[in-house]
């Protein structure tokens, strides 16, 4: 009896260390943040001394034009970069999915930007965007054009370009992997059926890559919502609020405005947004698995 109970407990004993670490490292800070988001909390107070204010932080934020602005900047940024990265990344993958001499070197070069630390990327682009000594304006001027006020008037576009430069390779390598795992013979069949190169891409390659593309896009979207360093280094959210993404606003609310409770509530809004996206991703993979399982069952029943 006791040994039987012990047997049943064994798996949980093995899981315990991991569970404890999870609780301490993940659940505790998360709980702390959720708890804090319901309080009017100043960094000079301990959390116990702070005042419980219910949903006040959330409601204030909901009507706060600055936060709304910041949210809309984040959404614009995230959807713009993911769309552009998808188009460029998939396009590059389609172009480079062939055996040409030196292709492996080229592929390695393409994924280099992804390996650079975001702070460095931010610094690099900030210098390149510099109105007088920056690379872009020097070029423009040497060709006889007016210089562009990159980080002033076109700040959001400029940070979007920098993010596209850094993260297109991520979509590129995943698309390339997806392309190379496509059934070769189906593409050959399409060639014999009379499909031109464009038609092969449109009717065969893209539809077959779609499951990978959807998951990749969602991963990138989740990441883009949390972007911080590059923008922090390049513009610090400015000019005005034009590039102040939510992550940046959270950090400023906590450090400059010293409103920990509001910052926590903001984080929770972001968390909810990301959670929805993540659940969507899970739902999509689940749906695909369920469909595969249903098909397998159908075949089996027919013998």
């Amino acid at each position: 009896m006791t040994s039987q109970r012990l047997n049943k407990l064994t798996p949980y004993m093995f899981m315990a260390p991991a569970a404890i670490i999870m609780a301490v490292a993940l659940l505790y800070p998360l709980g702390y943040m959720i708890y804090g988001s319901f309080r009017d909390w100043n960094p000079s107070q301990t959390i116990g001394e702070s005042e419980f204010v219910g949903f006040k932080n959330y409601i204030t934020l909901f009507y706060d034009p600055a936060f709304r602005e910041s949210l809309s900047v984040t959404l614009t940024f995230a959807f713009a970069v993911v769309t552009a990265e998808l188009v460029i990344g998939v396009g590059l993958a389609l172009l480079l999915d062939r055996n040409i001499r030196g292709m492996s070197v080229l592929r390695t070069l393409f994924i280099l930007p992804m390996m650079i630390a975001p702070v460095v990327v931010g610094l690099m682009w900030r210098y390149m965007y510099h109105p007088t000594v920056g690379t872009f304006n020097r070029w423009l001027k040497s060709w006889g054009f007016e210089g562009v006020d990159w980080l002033g008037q076109h700040a959001l576009l400029s940070v979007i370009i920098a993010d596209i430069w850094q993260w297109t390779p991520f979509i590129f390598i995943l698309s390339l992997a997806a392309l190379q795992s496509l059934p070769r013979s189906a593409l050959e069949a399409a060639r014999i059926d009379g499909a031109t190169a464009w038609q092969q891409i449109w009717y065969i390659k893209l539809p077959l890559m779609m499951p990978v593309l959807i998951v990749t896009a969602l991963l990138r979207l989740i990441d883009a919502f949390k972007v911080l360093e590059v923008i922090l280094v390049m513009t610090e959210g400015g000019p005005g609020l034009s590039t102040e993404i939510v992550a940046l606003r959270i950090s400023r609310t906590a450090t400059e405005f010293r409103e920990l409770g509001t910052a926590a509530a903001m984080s929770n809004y972001l968390l909810i947004l990301l959670l929805v996206l993540t659940l969507a991703m899970f739902a999509i993979t689940r749906l695909q698995e369920a469909r595969a399982a249903r098909l397998a069952r159908q075949i089996q029943e027919e013998g």
Partner: peptide, 28 residues
């Protein structure tokens, strides 16, 4: 291949997995 006026059946069938049977047959 498309200009040679031929049809081919492959060893692994080479069907288009995302199309139903009717669309597979009618693709060309």
């Amino acid at each position: 291949p498309k200009d040679r006026g031929l049809a081919m059946v492959f060893q692994d069938y080479a069907l288009y997995p995302h199309m139903d049977v009717a669309s597979n047959i009618s693709f060309a």
